[in-house]
Design a protein around this nucleic acid. Sequence first.
DNA 1: TTTTGTTGTGAGACCGGTCTCAAACTTGAA
DNA 2: TTCAAGTTTGAGACCGGTCTCACAACAAAA
Lengths: 361, 361
Amino acid sequence: MKRPPRLPSITVSDVAREAKVSKATAARVLGGYGRVSETVHAAVLEAAKALDYRPNELARSMTTGRSGSIGVVVGDIENPFFSLAVRGISDVARLSGINVILANSGEEVEAEKSAIHVLLAKRVDGLIVTPAQSGDIAHLKEIACPLALLDRALPELDVDTVTVDDRSAALRATRMLTQAGHRRIAYVTAAVLSGDFRGAKSRINTSTVRERILGFLEACREAGIEVAERNIHFGSGRSQSAHAVLLRLLRSADRPTAILASDSVVALDLFKAIRECGLGIPRDISLITFHDADWTSVTTPPITVIDQPVYALGKSVAELLIRRLKGDDRPPERIVLPTRIIERMSVGQSPETIGQSLSRS
Amino acid sequence: MKRPPRLPSITVSDVAREAKVSKATAARVLGGYGRVSETVHAAVLEAAKALDYRPNELARSMTTGRSGSIGVVVGDIENPFFSLAVRGISDVARLSGINVILANSGEEVEAEKSAIHVLLAKRVDGLIVTPAQSGDIAHLKEIACPLALLDRALPELDVDTVTVDDRSAALRATRMLTQAGHRRIAYVTAAVLSGDFRGAKSRINTSTVRERILGFLEACREAGIEVAERNIHFGSGRSQSAHAVLLRLLRSADRPTAILASDSVVALDLFKAIRECGLGIPRDISLITFHDADWTSVTTPPITVIDQPVYALGKSVAELLIRRLKGDDRPPERIVLPTRIIERMSVGQSPETIGQSLSRS
DNA sequence: TTTTGTTGTGAGACCGGTCTCAAACTTGAA
DNA sequence: TTCAAGTTTGAGACCGGTCTCACAACAAAA
């Protein structure tokens, strides 16, 4: 790996020589600091233009200690949820003249660790992370620069965090299902649970996952539904095996009559699986999903969704982080953005209660 | 803007002092270059661990002249096409230990220019760009570092480029429509045309747009369809007004009986507009779109699409660029990836020919 | 034993900026 | 006219690495 012949770029010294002033003076003009007389100022600028001077941001960062960029580690940019959030982040960043270095964790802790490592070595001024797992957060605690959490809070980590009201959202959505008479309701999420779940709610410390489950369980309890924990299905990520698991769920004897999906990717997979099984929405099965993804409004029937302010989510964390970068040292904030349910056509009476109401009328 | 109290980080000198060797020797071990005796090597490593030394990538870039990162400028990360391509890029980059700085142009040349400017100032080792406009490419020609073009070729720019067989794809798709008897076929794209179109095909020099139009026109010509140019609709981006234009198109007296959409975002908008107008697919109108987006397979009816190898597109440009970064100086390559049409249910006989075939049989 | 070569190490320049400090030059009041 | 205060400028250290070069130590060849 030999060094390539570095293309000689124009430096402050070159400009200084051209303008017949000292390097320090040229640097003052070019760097926009200190005070310089009108005449010299103009001369330097002219020389810079003549030479087509381009500042080397790297060298600047070197001395100032700030790189002018923030690192963003998301689970999967391919997921529309994240790509929209990233859009929000980068829009805000651009306004502050900060740029975004993106890294994908693929929802794996090891990849997340290494990504953070690299970003830190690059001396990013701050980090926005969507922690892949909640159990393993030592590497997050060690981070010396400002850190902000996106979409997923970590109780043990007292940093700026922006999430949505996951619990309430799950509660309301589930209630919508129980009120339609459903009693076999499943919650399906892509999140993986390390270890066994049964009763160990407290062990799930990724807020998003935990809060949603709590909301889900609360609504079930309200409706007097027992052992609702059994109906929580983890690990329905983007894979063949995950799809197979869904098919099995849908084909089981006591298949759910309603499902709440944790994100639009899982929901799409579910939607396809439901079709494959020849089941009808909402006739045989009702479906609600988190995230108002594109496709949810154009299916037949269109899907009832929990609309999360995804763009705003990204925008807010970025704002919080950038404020901190500017020296704000208020105690960490935890912003919770409200969600709303967009009712479409995917929720119907439970097939089990329809018989009753028919016979009653 | 006063300098924040820089947190003193551990440097090679610190490690050197701790290990009781010279800075140069410590640097050799830590930087992994030169030759050092076993004993000293171990001692330095130990000192580094004890002090929790983290190399400053910035300083390293400073001297080596290479930053270990590439810049990616896309039109809109929010568009699933781009987010998938970016995924491809970053997967490849990660494998080479290179990271990705992402910038959004919002499909605007000015934003693109400024993004490139910033990335260049950050001394990225290379750039991957999806040029927003083809007319204004002076800023691209000036780029001194390796550049690769994604999805959109520029004839005047002889650099590594990865595109798909847009022309053939458009030709095949349009042919599918003409063979179903359609004669009023529209091509709808989000691209904006600077100036007037009529007959000035040559002026469209964004390959993607031009090639597709050429393919479209060729298929029309084959079928003996006149003035097909009139049926090309530009500027159907993500906006209220664009949607209104679509509605007007669909409600006009000589509305098309078939539409080819240039990307999935436009197509989704179209799909909704078609519904709003109370038209049925494929009964009243047939639809084919570029990009096998999520939603196209779950609508009723599912949409026939031109499946572009988007992930591979990103993967390929990244590979090309990284190869170049490693010193490969073969002449620029222009890779054209094949597409295939996934036939679903959105293409039907033209309503105008159905009557004929019925009466004939 | 002298010469030649190889290997390990240290001193210090360098990358391209920022920034401190002191010298030189203005200005204005005494 | 002189001195204090303010402004403009230049010299040079510094950031944290890389890398060249010189030198010392030792081994092998003459």
